[in-house]
Amino acid sequence: MDIFLQQLLNALSLGGTYALLALGLAVVFSIIGLINFAHGELMTVTGYAVCFALIWGLPFPLAVIAGLAVAMTAAFLMERVAFRPVRGASGTTLLLTSFAVSAILRVLFQNLISARPIPVAIPASLSGVVTIGPLHLGMIQLISIIVTLAMLLGLNLFLHRTMAGRAMRAAAEDFAVLRLMGLRANSVVATAFAISGLLAGVAGVLWVAQRGSVDPLMGALPVLKAFIAAIIGGLGSLSGAVAGGFLLGFIEVILQAYLPESLLPYRDAFAILLVIAVLLFRPQGLLARKTLVKL
């Protein structure tokens, strides 16, 4: 029983990270219909920003804040430079543009910074353990659960209580009507990217704290997981992305824990099979959104 509870806690921690990532994708997709595959590179940018801030002697909390600021700025710039010129183009064009942004950034990191991973000095206090009865939880896992919940709550308040948040929700419903109401499309889209950048930044810091280094390609895998989570949840639905993230984390941990040893190498195949099974019953995802995305 203890072991099962421990595994549940592990699932919560992994699922939380996936939820943060999927939410970052969903915020942008719900508004302009773009699946931003360069989302992972926003995590990488955050990692480098934290890393260089530490090297320049900033204390860790300030370095994290600098990292988040850089992530938001990078997301904002990405939108301004790469995505605004193709806004309203077909989904394929948007998708290919995001692949291009991602590929260009990776090559730039490899050739301008370093192809080798750069170590990030994570404070030793983050390596600690919290013991609750028979359960152990690493400091980073605990922080990632708390931060995920805080981000979800914060985002919820933002979307429902502020003008910019309401505008974003309206934009997700019907962009054309939003513009007829006299709201500026550009500022709504920019806000969405900034939020997506912030989510990527938070996930990036948690990701880097776990691995202790930044390398140019580190964003590739998380964005893939986020994509799967967002698909299970129903693309474009924010609560769906969160649900999808937690479900994916849960599936992965339970399979790792309870598959027989001889089948363990096929764990990812089983996980994807379960995802396909979910999609067979709910082709639109768990919490699908009915409205079409138009711009």
Binding site: I3, Q6, Q7, L9, N10, A11, S13, L14, Q141, W207, Q210, R211, M218, A220, L221, E252, V253, I254, Q256, A257, R267, D268
Partner: peptide, 13 residues
Amino acid sequence: TMGQQDFGAEVTK
């Protein structure tokens, strides 16, 4: 799985 960075389930075992 390489790159996954999550060993929670494995470590518990």
